[in-house]
Amino acid sequence: MKSESIDRAEVFVVGPDTEKHAWAEGMAGQHMANIVLRLTTHGGLEGIAGAAMITSHGFDLSVGETLRYLLPEIMNQTAAEREGLWHRFRNLGTPQVPQAQSLIDIALWDMTARQAGLPLYQLLGGARHKILSYASTPLLPDNMAYIDYVSERQREGFKAVKFHCWCNPARDLPMCEAAAKHFAGSGMELMLDVEQRYDLEGALKVGKRIGELGFRWFEAPVPDTNFAAYREIKRRSAVPIIAAGNTWVDLQQLAAGIELDCWSALRVDATICGGITPLRKIMGLAEAHGMSVEIQCWGYTLTQAANLHVMLAYQNCTYFEQPVPYPAFEHGALDVIRTDKDGYVHAPSGVGLGIRTDWDAIRSSAILNFEVRPKK
């Protein structure tokens, strides 16, 4: 029906004046652009999505500019054609900025759930309505700052924290030991993410020790492309090993990594792997191998929401990644996702993604804004 076909796409690359954080020694505060896509049908039905692009020194426009050339492909198409559109974009032949395709797919899923009058997680399967959360920290100045920070999160209700730290084994390991000692017996789960910045020797040393300390997992110890190193680290470490999740995002790549026994769990992001359509396939691939998918959620509220809905639709994900401090990640959202006093995040209450957008805030902070309409 013509009323269900897409008649308009609006793109906003938003560069808000929010607090900027770093996640490794020597890293400047990062500029996190929020790329928001709004699709509208001839009949007025909307679908929205948001993805982050994180860069040093300034806000990146590449996702928005890529959308300028992809969006004409979906004009006069419908949300019911998601699978075909995903295959069309996947096989363009030239690599694209991954968030661009992801945004289109997520907006189509949001539109589909709105049309059905359902929250997206229920449309996708509805396995549960809440999931445990971990606080994902910024870089902090010293060991005591991390202990104080985790203590604050624990008082708020968090039962798990993931450290972003200096990414230097000589500094990271003493901090991990101090934190493990301080929170021993408190029920607080600890994870470590070193942003793919260790070499194999450092990763083996730290992996062995934090396994002894009972850490929940060790994330991104070396570059994701180094399958051989991941296999060796996993073989020689007691702690579960997962990748960063931004490099190997295709089914065939992930299947190869599983076959080589590189990881204890998979890690991807709906806004980077191509959207919810491929993420559903990845969830099934992992389940078939008895693995979880520890989905990352780093970004503004719309990014968090897309990933949360998938987590709630399936059983094989253990934690929601809650970026903190909250305000830096909530610009442009009238509904936000926060961890409750018992350590859980809950499904948004509205239909689709369930996030109402502050369009005035989005427009006022946009550094690139354009629309695409069907050719006459």
Rank of each mutant, 00 (worst) to 15 (best):
D7T: 08
R8L: 04
E25S: 14
A33M: 03
R38C: 03
G44K: 00
A52Q: 04
M53Y: 11
T55I: 07
E65P: 10
Y69N: 05
A79M: 09
L85W: 08
F89I: 00
N91R: 15
L92Y: 11
L108I: 02
D110V: 00
M111W: 01
T112I: 12
Q122I: 00
H129Q: 09
A135N: 04
Y146L: 07
D148M: 03
A160S: 13
H164E: 02
C165R: 05
D172F: 12
L200N: 03
E201D: 15
E212S: 10
A220N: 00
D224R: 02
R235W: 08
S237T: 09
P240H: 06
N246W: 12
N246S: 13
Q253P: 10
I258H: 07
D261P: 01
W263Y: 15
W263S: 11
T271L: 06
T271E: 11
I272N: 13
K281R: 15
C297D: 00
M311V: 07
M311E: 15
Y319H: 14
Y319W: 11
V324E: 10
P327F: 06
F329N: 05
R338Y: 00
T339L: 02
K341Y: 09
H346A: 13
A347L: 13
A361M: 08
L368N: 01
K375H: 14
K376A: 13
